[in-house]
Nucleic acid binder design. Structure first.
Lengths: 103, 103
DNA sequence: TCTATAGTTCGATTATATTGGAACATTGAT
DNA sequence: ATCAATGTTCCAATATAATCGAACTATAGA
């Protein structure tokens, strides 16, 4: 069973987080994960883009520490690392999520 | 006397703001403006980079609505549009500024 | 008017990101 | 074993951004 590596809280870099959130597609993914209240597979997050593009964006969200991906069978279950990110940089993710609701 | 155009609060776009804040140099400029408590000229913000590079970053910060630049004589006085940005997207700029103090 | 100062704009170069098709890997089911 | 499903990785093309020297603009002062 494969496992995907994620950064620890200590390794979270503010600029990586900002960079990851600066892209509209990724911001949408983050908002969907936040609002769904449950883990979502990549397939459930359908933004009408090819798989390889979505995979690219997930990779960036993961490496920024924003998204955690657990492999269950053939599916990859994605969730927002909300509490961890908030712990390191309080208010950043929360306020950005609130801001996305105005869009 | 020349005047520089800035976006209105209504025109502020979240992704523009995030994009502007995703660059280390710009984040540093923003932090300096926030911590100084007064308007700073471009020259006072010395990050050991050529003028043209700094001007480029200021332009992006201005177009994102984060920085206001008033021309006084030959100098350009820069200030953070903190209250306006906070009004539109509460907590975003504030939490990012707090986060920069950990860097 | 000539000169110095503060920034901007231009233009070319280099670096980095996005995109998406095709091949690949892993797992589950038949 | 074979096959289908879910994503990832690879690769090449395109697009966008950063960098910085040089030329330019606007203003102030002598």
């Amino acid at each position: 069973m494969r496992k995907i590596k994620h950064p620890t809280i200590e390794q979270l870099e503010l600029t990586d987080i900002m960079y990851a959130l600066a892209d509209p597609t990724r911001l949408e993914i983050v908002a969907l994960l936040a609002n769904s209240g449950r883990k979502l597979t990549c397939g459930e997050i359908n933004l009408n883009r090819p798989k390889s593009s979505m995979s690219h964006h997930f990779k960036i969200l993961r490496s920024a520490g924003l998204v955690e991906t657990l492999i269950e069978g053939t599916e990859h279950m994605n969730s927002l690392r909300f509490n961890e990110v908030e712990q390191k940089y309080p208010g950043v993710l929360n306020s950005v999520l609130k801001a996305t609701k105005k869009l």
